[in-house]
Design a protein around this nucleic acid. Structure first.
Lengths: 176, 176
DNA sequence: TATTACGTTTAGTAAATACTAAACATACTA
DNA sequence: TAGTATGTTTAGTATTTACTAAACGTAATA
């Protein structure tokens, strides 16, 4: 393969690793995505291994993360027991998937924790200074409201998405 | 101070630490914000130190991160050389500031790196297989377009913000 | 100018994270 | 059923990150 191509490819993959890291994902996630994104056809795990320089274990983990994020798809060929992986090229689709993913897991739990605090504060009437309690309730309530707003934003995006409307692209069109 | 209050406060702060971590910031950032957010008046650095359990150095660093994010303000009192810190309570304001912040730094650089790859590919006409080159240009271009779309989204948000329109709240109202 | 009160920076450390290498599980093939 | 090709899990390790403790800088006061 052309030397020049190799170099450019490598730099691009490094760039994606950096971006990946910036968005809070392991660098390997970016590297694996980069490899798949620049491939004209599905790659097997071992091909990703050799092109990324990571080990099988690492690629396996990173690929799993990417598929959960909707950035990579697993495909298989008849009469071939290898798995093959392809990069998603519709990023708007992916971003919505990512929003959904991030929401549903830890974020949900975090909201619940704030909610719990709020409940406790509300039921603490009498057991603590009333002025202070009121203040705390107000503050925590405000945070809770904010979180549930974010939550409903992502839900709305998912809903529109199901209706076949490309939310993000539309918003962008309006704002541009 | 009331035992019950202390406990609730502590749990709340732990919750925020968790959220902070989830969003890719140090846990200390969440803790410091929590302390300030539950305070009815500005706190000095040392007060934050004692209420968060972190050391001065850590609080100093975390507070700086928070002020850059627009989540905390530094204020000072006449005839008092301590700095005092207050939590922002308008989260919509903060989220816009955060979007701006995240954009302008590393993200910008990441975009530039992708852009650089694109330039190289475009100027490599002749020095590599033409079909492959075309394919790569197409892919990298698509990514580049996506990034610049994201970029214009955040710019648009900032612009509306300047006009006194609360973007996010409005979007939420529509989508709810 | 010496002292004190404060915030920041630095050097070292502890903890978290993502990697490698290798063992393992699974399912296809002979 | 044994052997082989594949992906996953695990144990150990290297790296990164965010912390502590202490030194440092700076500015106000005496």
């Amino acid at each position: 393969m052309n030397k020049n191509t190799e170099q450019i490819r490598k730099e691009f993959i490094e760039g994606l690793s950096h971006i990946s890291h910036f968005w809070g994902y392991p660098k390997g996630v970016g590297a694996v995505f980069g490899v798949l994104y620049l491939a004209p056809n599905p790659l097997s795990l071992d091909e990703v291994v050799s092109q990324s320089g990571l080990t099988k274990g690492a690629v396996s983990t990173n690929v799993r993360a990417l598929t959960r994020l909707g950035l990579v798809y697993r495909s298989s060929r008849l009469g071939d027991r290898k798995d093959y992986y392809v990069a998603e090229t519709d990023f708007y689709k992916s971003i919505r998937a990512i929003l959904g993913e991030r929401q549903n897991r830890e974020f949900d739990q975090a909201i619940r924790s704030v909610n719990l605090t709020l409940e406790k504060l509300k039921s603490a009437k009498g057991s603590m200074d009333e002025a202070e309690r009121k203040f705390l309730v107000e503050r925590v309530q405000a945070l809770q409201d904010f979180f549930s707003a974010i939550d409903s934003l992502s839900r709305a995006a998912a809903r529109l998405d199901n209706l076949g409307v490309n939310t993000i692209q539309n918003i962008l069109k309006i704002l541009k």
